[in-house]
Nucleic acid binder design. Sequence first.
DNA 1: GCATTTGTTTGTATTCATTACAACTTTGCT
DNA 2: AGCAAAGTTGTAATGAATACAAACAAATGC
Lengths: 137, 137
Amino acid sequence: MNDSELISVLSRRGIRPTQQRIAVYKYLLTHPEHPSADTIYRALVEEYPVFSRTTIYNSLGALIEAGLVRQVNICADEQRFDATVTDHGHFFCKECGKVYDFGFDSPAMVSRLCPRGFIKEQGDVFFTGICKHCYSF
Amino acid sequence: MNDSELISVLSRRGIRPTQQRIAVYKYLLTHPEHPSADTIYRALVEEYPVFSRTTIYNSLGALIEAGLVRQVNICADEQRFDATVTDHGHFFCKECGKVYDFGFDSPAMVSRLCPRGFIKEQGDVFFTGICKHCYSF
DNA sequence: GCATTTGTTTGTATTCATTACAACTTTGCT
DNA sequence: AGCAAAGTTGTAATGAATACAAACAAATGC
């Protein structure tokens, strides 16, 4: 996705396509490893020397509000963020700290877990354990 | 579960059944609404005036290590704790803020979602939305 | 074009959950 | 009893997230 496409995506969602928001969104799109606010900040401050931590949080807030980004509550110590908003699961490796995405064979299955009468807006499946790569040792 | 039963449960899990750990565990067993560390602290300090916040965290850590308690990453701002360790889901109502537990029709279904080669230690299904009671209005 | 207002960014100060640490206490064992 | 190991306590430190006010930019009205 190039910059003009990003601008139109943000505009269509009703938020002003500022340089900072575009940079944050672009970073999330190109780094699907669920970075923390701090990770995003460290990366972007290299590229744009004047970039405030607060702006990271503000931009993430605006993007979440607009439905373009999701918050992932997978680690206890810090929030992680994810530009993939379609239903998918997360696997957190206790060993290497990475968060892996995985799809569902049948997405409807997950919705079927939701109890009757409860209106589901967002669903997440979280697993914690040892990832494929760390288990080899 | 009375105190002597609690003592034997803790002992069997390999942790010393101290008064404080028993108190924390008993609180979680009798309060299934997923309290935070602070909520537990405030409640227990009433009963046992000398009770440190650090002890709450230490006890929770020991109980989690022993597999008797689970950490629930429901809110971004604070950890919640849960003495129900069998696989179950959580529904967070945006309206009333309550966290509902729900079981699965077929628990194996959840494990089947875990990607191949990844060693699952803990699984959690988490829905956000509007609960049955808030939807009625 | 210029002034006004509205929204955004920035940097610093603050909040607050959690952790680190060292002194003290309790428990288990011989 | 006496000793070592484990647990508890309170305070201090950490660090992610938020509040806030000043500076800045962009949109609107004239």
